[in-house]
């Protein structure tokens, strides 16, 4: 008996929508780890290159810095959780995917514009293609995080 009541109250609490949806647990935990690695990798790489050898390949290094910012923002959103963060992360994952595909194609079509590689060169081949896999899994996870939400939260 007490259990059924507990279940009903739990359901009732859920339909009023939780204040913050957790995005960094379950499969999201793995995403947080990978985005963490890529934030650190891209940020330290671009910092070093921008400071030490900017003249050699300004375009490539600026794009590396941009990717670091995108990774960092997605990481922050995943850790923060909540619907607003979920949407922001969704937009950034889409931007990230466009970035990987766009820059990947650009580096193949016009290699002379890139004397040095970026994180997103050749679709992230230097990073085991994780840069192109990561935004796809990110988008799938963030979409699923929404469908798991109670119906009341979806209408806005």
């Amino acid at each position: 008996m007490p259990e059924t009541t507990a279940a009903t109250t739990a359901d009732g609490a859920e339909s009023t929508a939780p204040a913050k949806r957790s995005l960094g647990t379950g499969p999201g935990r793995l995403l947080v780890a990978l985005y963490g690695v890529f934030t650190v990798a891209a940020a330290s790489r671009s910092l070093y290159q921008l400071l030490a050898q900017f003249d050699r390949a300004p375009l490539a290094y600026s794009l590396s810095a941009l990717s670091a910012v995108v990774y960092g923002f997605i990481l922050f959103s995943l850790v923060r959780g909540g619907e607003g963060a979920r949407r922001a992360a969704l937009a950034c994952c889409a931007l990230e995917l466009l970035g990987v595909l766009g820059i990947g194609t650009w580096t193949l079509l016009d290699p002379s514009a890139f004397p040095d590689a970026t994180v997103w060169s050749d679709y992230g081949m230097g990073y085991l293609f994780i840069p192109v896999i990561l935004p796809v899994t990110g988008l799938l996870w963030l979409r699923r995080a929404r469908t798991e939400q109670p119906a009341a939260g979806v209408q806005d």
Binding site: G26, R29, L30, V32, A33, G36, V37, S44
Partner: peptide, 27 residues
């Protein structure tokens, strides 16, 4: 980075008591 990555993911798997914690440590 090499010295930090296993301890960092280890702590993350400590608070994620599912298969995904194991996957994080493996990553």
């Amino acid at each position: 980075g090499a010295a930090a990555c296993v301890p960092a993911t280890g702590f993350m798997s400590l608070s994620e008591r599912t298969r995904w914690g194991s996957a994080t440590a493996a990553a």
